[in-house]
Nucleic acid binder design. Structure first.
Length: 177
DNA sequence: TTAGTGATATCC
DNA sequence: GATATCACTAAA
């Protein structure tokens, strides 16, 4: 199966987030289909970690598209993201769920993903990457969750994308709730 | 609904 | 150095 290339990630994070739904996440010899993503889009997005600028934690988001960003949340859950867009611009897509593992923390636990993968490349690295197996599906757009600290306008953005199981014949999107 | 957990950022 | 916060989950 073809691995997703630099060109796939080198686009605005909202587009990448939408297109990542239905792709196959490969890690540690295991494969899981991505069923839910969220876009975090630059310093202007108050929900984005980098909205307050570049810090030791967020500088990975300024790296080239296709870089893996993993961080620990609530002291026990690793969150998996992929850097997108232009280098120097802090954009990333959070992998929120796979068909086999709902929830961002459960997903990383199931695949054994930890901070050791932070800053590795999903383009050339041997640990983690994504593939396109030709699967097509419907995708719906929703509000992001868990970002109560963000501005109301940013909370209202439909930057969460969910796989529509019963719309396999549809390549049209998004379908809004 | 609430406890649990530890890195990070932000304030002394 | 100290504290508050957090892109969550499991148990009740």
């Amino acid at each position: 199966m073809p691995r997703l290339t630099e060109e796939f990630y080198h686009r605005p994070c909202v587009q990448v987030a939408r297109d990542l739904v239905g792709k196959v996440l490969v890690c540690g010899g295991r494969r899981m289909r991505v069923s839910q993503t969220e876009a975090y889009c630059g310093e202007a997005d108050t929900a984005c970690h980098a909205s307050k600028g570049r810090t030791k934690r967020t500088e990975v988001m300024y790296m080239p598209a296709g870089t893996v960003y993993v961080y620990l949340c609530y002291g026990m859950h690793w969150m998996l993201n992929l850097v997108t867009g232009e280098e120097g611009q802090p954009e990333a897509v959070l992998i929120r769920a796979c068909v086999e593992a709902p929830g961002p923390g459960r997903l990383t636990k199931a695949l054994g993903i930890t901070g050791a993968l932070n800053r590795t490349s999903a383009l050339t690295g041997e640990s983690l990457w994504l593939e396109d197996d030709g699967f097509v599906c419907g995708v719906s757009a929703h509000k992001r969750v868990g970002i109560g600290y963000a501005s109301q306008a940013d909370q209202d953005r439909l930057w969460r994308f969910v796989l529509e199981e019963n719309a396999a014949d549809s390549t049209e999107n998004p379908v809004c709730p």
